[in-house]
């Protein structure tokens, strides 16, 4: 039993990291029906920036907050440069321009920080404590808590503010929203900014928990987060969060049940099964794609 709880904590911790990154994808998708291919590279850049600031001695909270803000700014820049000029073009066009933007960001990061895996300072200490005779690691719990708080704040922002309501209008019909006087060129960049902010927060938790920051993490995070978003229902904010948690738990328990050689395979089979039963994801609503 204690072992099952420990694995549940493992799964929830890595799942909340996936979830934070997935939320960013899902928000952008819900507005423009486009996968933001630059997201993974934006969050990698944010994580490396956090590393550099910590190394030169910027206080931890300041460094982490600034890195998240940089993620938001980068997200907005990507929107301005790679998406807005081609917003109404064929869907292939923004996909390619976003891939290009991602490539530029990733290459810049590689030019600055090199291709090696770097250790990340432990901003959340790796303590553990005993509970009912079971050793409970402290760091995963904090990671879960931070993820929940960040998503709660984003929920309030989206559900109870004018900004949130405007965002929902844009989601429903971008053209009608524009005609109703909603400043879409403010709302859309803000969505990218929130996605970038949460994404870098997720990336910092990711590198803290895995204890490593490296260039290819963007690709891996994209893959995991996109799986999580599919699982929860693409375009659904809370669905992406729950999807991330479930993906993490599925990974941890595939080690328990089938063995670690099949960890990635099993979790993907799990996703395929759910999508077979619910093609729009767990919380997805049946939608028809706009052309």
């Amino acid at each position: 039993m204690a072992y099952v709880i420990e694995q549940l904590i493992n799964g929830l911790a890595v799942g909340s990291v996936y979830a934070l990154i997935a939320v960013g994808y899902s928000m952008v998708y819900s507005i423009l029906y486009l996968i933001n291919f630059a997201h993974g590279d934006v969050i990698t850049f944010g994580a490396f920036t956090a590393l550099t600031m910590l190394v030169i001695g910027v206080p931890i909270p300041v460094a982490l907050f600034l890195a998240c803000v940089l993620g938001a700014a980068l997200g907005m820049t990507v929107e301005r440069i790679a998406y807005r000029p081609v917003r109404y073009a064929n869907r292939i066009v923004p996909m390619i321009s976003a891939l290009g933007a991602g490539l530029v960001i990733a290459s810049t990061a590689q030019a600055i920080w090199g291709p090696e895996v770097h250790a990340f300072p432990q901003v959340i200490p790796r303590w553990s404590f005993e509970l009912f005779g079971q050793l409970i690691p402290f760091q995963p719990l904090i990671i879960i808590a931070i993820a929940v708080v960040l998503v709660a704040i984003a929920t309030v922002l989206l559900d109870y503010t004018r900004l949130g309501r405007a965002t929902k209008c844009v989601c429903q019909d971008i053209h009608a929203a524009q005609l109703m006087g909603i400043p879409i060129n403010t709302i859309v960049p803000l969505v990218y900014a929130i996605g970038g902010f949460l994404g870098v927060a997720g990336a910092i938790l990711y590198v803290t928990y895995f204890n490593a920051v490296y260039i290819q993490m963007g690709l891996l995070a994209t893959f995991k987060a996109w799986s999580a978003a599919m699982l929860g229902g693409v375009g659904n904010f809370h669905g992406a969060f729950v999807g991330g948690l479930l993906l993490g738990i599925a990974e941890a328990f595939s080690v328990v049940v089938v063995g670690s050689a099949f960890k990635d395979g099993v979790s993907l089979v799990f996703i395929v099964l759910i999508l077979l039963l619910k093609p729009d994801g767990l919380f997805g609503e049946r939608t028809t794609a706009r052309s």
Binding site: Y3, E6, Q7, N10, G11, A13, V14, P140, Y209, F210, A212, Q216, M217, L220, E251, A252, F253, V255, V256, G259, S260, A261, K263, D264
Partner: peptide
């Protein structure tokens, strides 16, 4: 326990096991 090279970076489940 094992892991997929260059893909897995989270070993927490293997560590617990």
């Amino acid at each position: 326990e094992t892991f997929t090279p260059n893909v897995d970076r989270d070993f927490s489940a293997q560590i617990s096991s």
